[in-house]
């Protein structure tokens, strides 16, 4: 039923935007907010609904880096690699997290779909360099050790949640 709810939400979004192809980007943004990524079949669906070819929708979805066609983890970690963070050795942070989460450049999401690790070019928080953002939470003046601790905290919190759900 959860899938159906999301699917109906897609309909709502398309209708709210008047099935208008010039509203494609707002539609994609809203759909991504719902699914956390843009599933292929939903994109085809959007294309037929607004009357443009799926190839064009795919083109738009791949052009903007804010759109993603791959499912992202529950926790989306973005390590800043702008100039200020870079000179403060942000790549050390990134490498440490990669190692901890057993990720590589070509594999940025953990198998349990808990974490996605990416770099961004500037968060605009240069005063806090090196910085990273986990979902909406900003962490500044990090060291690789501190970054690892943050991850551990999340993993622990998740494990507790799980136990709670089981107890219920």
């Amino acid at each position: 039923m959860e899938t159906l709810r999301k699917f109906e939400k897609v309909w709502e979004i398309i209708d709210q935007n008047g099935r208008d192809s010039s509203r494609l980007i707002p539609i994609l943004q809203a759909v991504q907010a719902e699914y956390r990524y843009l599933p292929e079949e939903i994109l085809t669906f959007i294309a037929t609904s607004v009357g443009i070819s799926p190839a064009r929708v795919f083109g738009v979805a791949t052009f903007y880096s804010l759109f993603t066609l791959k499912p992202k983890g529950k926790y989306h970690i973005r390590v800043c690699n702008g100039t200020a963070c870079h000179v403060k050795r942000s790549m050390d942070l990134h490498n440490a997290l990669q190692k901890k989460l057993n990720l590589r450049d070509e594999k940025d999401t953990t198998d349990d779909m808990l974490f996605t690790l990416e770099t961004v070019n500037c968060l605009g928080a240069c005063g806090l360099a090196p910085a990273m953002v986990v979902n909406e939470e900003v962490y500044g003046q990090l060291t690789p050790e501190r970054a690892n601790e943050i991850i551990d905290d999340i993993i622990n919190a998740e494990a507790h949640n799980e136990q709670d759900t089981h107890r219920l």
């Binding site: 064009r56 795919f58 791949t62």
Partner: peptide
């Protein structure tokens, strides 16, 4: 059936997905 996808140096003309 074909359109531009991706961006910058990675731009390609390909079928959907």
């Amino acid at each position: 059936a074909i359109d531009f996808a991706h961006r910058g140096a990675n731009t390609m003309v390909i079928p959907s997905f």
